[in-house]
């Protein structure tokens, strides 16, 4: 018998964290904040360089563009953190060690992010349909379609 407990793995936590709005909409907010920063910074430059706007208006435009730049960089860092760290959590043991005594290790730890997502979807699918077995092969097709 081998040991396969997806819920006890770091990659499962990453699969769950992916649904958090902070990560789910990171890409959207990244683009939005970049566009807003560029727009406000260009308006600021238009007003500041030939002195088209008052000093107070220029200050506010610069403030807004600074805030949007900070938001853009934060969203970018968050995205990088999720993609580079959370999605790529490595198991502490190597496969060559595990293969000697597979029952002593949780094999789910060796799943990649996409594979863990597919297994989670399969578990959820089987639970929804009240099936006694988990149809792992069902999920990748659904996953691909999605």
């Amino acid at each position: 018998m081998f040991n396969f407990e997806l819920k006890k793995t770091a990659i499962y936590r990453a699969v769950k964290w992916e649904k958090w709005p902070i990560f789910k909409f990171a890409k959207f907010f990244e683009k939005l904040f970049l566009i807003l920063f560029v727009i406000f910074f260009l308006i600021f430059l238009y007003g500041f360089v030939p002195e088209n706007f008052s000093q107070a208006a220029s200050k506010k435009l610069l403030g807004l563009s600074t805030i949007f730049l900070v938001c853009y960089l934060s969203a970018r860092i968050k995205g990088a953190f999720f993609n580079l760290k959370l999605k790529n959590s490595k198991p502490e043991t190597t496969l060559s060690e595990v293969i000697l005594n597979p029952e002593d290790y949780n094999l789910a730890e060796f799943l990649s992010f996409e594979a863990a997502k597919a297994v989670k979807q399969a578990i959820d699918f089987s639970r929804r349909r009240k099936l006694s077995k988990v149809y792992i092969f069902q999920s990748p097709f659904e996953f691909k379609r999605n």
Binding site: K60, G63, L64, S65, T66, I67, L69, V70, L73, S74
Partner: peptide
């Protein structure tokens, strides 16, 4: 720098 930038931006606003 991000924290400083945020404070700076809010102060300007």
């Amino acid at each position: 720098l991000l924290i400083f930038g945020l404070i700076f931006g809010i102060k300007l606003l």
